[in-house]
């Protein structure tokens, strides 16, 4: 049996086991090669397709690398001012409680300029999903220090490495929001390996299922890479992330509902 025949036989709709979700647009993403943003978008789209809620969900895009999220996800999306996505999402959900609402925010957006909006939306228990991409750097503006930049980590504004004595400590937002009564499900995941992607996708599914039940804020941190900002190849960046980011930002559930 030659390869050609085999391939020809296999490439049929009935044998299809994986293709890009139709909730993604045909646009090529603006993300750098190997960036976790694309994967995170993809699995959000997959969950929305699987739950068949494309017509019932509104997304809120941040200012950051994912500012153009609306070009890649075939959803109704509002682009919010820097850090304000949780406030924007709060109003959408309050005014249309029957819809699904999520924010998608990078670390600068969520953990620096938008800290107040994040904490208060979580504290009010807004019935929204917050997806928080933490890659320890400001990617869009060219690799500046983020609130989540690790101690000693170099960036264009911590060129000698983050000195916590003068620049403060890397902020663990997920740990903080898990202490708030308003949050219902809080987890930290990643998307660098197939198993991690599958786990993160399950977390997104759970969060949206909880939202359907009006349970409160669901917060999913995705520790991710920034190959360009970290000046590494994508494969190296994922390895570095596992070796250096995960010890400080360990993966796992921070708050799991009792119903699980």
């Amino acid at each position: 049996m030659s390869d050609n025949i085999t391939k020809g036989k296999m490439i049929k709709p009935e044998n299809l086991v994986y293709t890009k979700s139709r909730v993604m647009t045909d646009n090529v993403t603006s993300y750098c090669p190997g960036c976790g943003h694309g994967t995170a978008h993809r699995i959000i789209a997959e969950v929305i397709e699987e739950m068949d809620i494309q017509s019932e969900i509104i997304g809120v895009a941040p200012v950051g690398c994912s500012v153009l999220m609306y070009d890649f996800l075939d959803l109704d999306i509002q682009q919010a001012a820097h850090g304000r996505a949780p406030a924007v999402a709060t109003a959408i959900k309050r005014l249309m409680p029957e819809k699904f609402v999520f924010t998608y925010q990078d670390d600068g957006d969520l953990a620096a300029i938008g800290t107040a909006e994040t904490i208060h939306a979580c504290n009010r228990g807004e019935n929204i999903m917050i997806v928080f991409i933490n890659n320890g750097i400001y990617g869009m503006t060219g690799g500046q220090m983020a609130p989540t930049t690790l101690e000693g980590m170099k960036s264009s504004t911590s060129p000698y490495g983050r000195d916590v004595a003068t620049m403060g400590n890397p902020l663990k937002m997920t740990d903080i929001v898990a202490t708030l009564p308003g949050t219902y499900y809080v987890t930290r995941q990643s998307v660098q390996k197939p198993a991690n992607v599958r786990k993160t996708k399950k977390a997104i599914r759970k969060a949206l299922e909880y939202q359907k039940l009006n349970r409160g804020t669901c917060f999913i941190e995705i520790v991710s890479n920034c190959p360009s900002g970290w000046k590494m190849t994508p494969v190296e960046s994922n390895k570095w992330m596992e070796d250096t980011m995960f010890p400080y930002y360990p993966l796992g559930d921070f708050k799991v509902p009792e119903e699980d």
């Binding site: 993300y31 976790g36 694309g38």
Partner: peptide
């Protein structure tokens, strides 16, 4: 599953 650009079917 790991492809950030969803280019693999």
């Amino acid at each position: 599953v790991v492809c950030p650009d969803g280019v693999i079917t």
